[in-house]
Design a protein around this nucleic acid. Structure first.
Lengths: 73, 73
DNA sequence: TGCTCAGATATCATATATGATAACCTATAT
DNA sequence: ATATAGGTTATCATATATGATATCTGAGCA
């Protein structure tokens, strides 16, 4: 797995969990205190996320942090 | 858990795995192509790591990415 | 006494994540 | 036709992770 594949996978995880919870990107962004444009970039796998950002999202979505990095490698 | 506690825990995880493998900070830094000063900062929990950095370390230490974020929250 | 080795810490430069704002698209509804 | 909702993309500013280098401590060893 290279870094760009990782960004994509993490973004997809976030999107899936968000959709499973039935909330919009805008709603998630609001609860995270992110701009919706940032949320879009993140889900699209366009950024190299930091721990801090992942922590915020995991807290808002109430899923363990490791769930975002849990895939076959 | 706040962000600073997270940085500390991740740094401690990295250090523990490294020590279990019996390699020095310098050696790990070299294999990651990091400066040893960066490795020290990371293990000390002083930085908000990015996915890219975590991926490099997980690859070099041959542990799954999620192991770095696997703790009670 | 020096002399490595392992690690910590400080500083500066550079690259980039995120904040912030705006414009845009598509679908749906009025 | 207009409005709204959900999402994307572009741009600029700011904060900071990392690269790079240097200095320091302490332990162990010749």
């Amino acid at each position: 797995m290279n870094e760009f594949q990782l960004y994509l996978k993490v973004g997809q995880k976030i999107r899936k969990i968000r959709e499973d919870k039935g909330i919009s990107q805008q709603e998630l962004a609001d609860r995270c205190n992110f701009e919706k444009s940032n949320m879009s970039r993140i889900e699209a796998g366009k950024t190299n996320l930091t721990l801090k950002t992942l922590l915020t999202i995991s807290t808002v979505l109430t899923v363990p942090l490791k769930d975002f990095l849990d895939f076959e490698e």
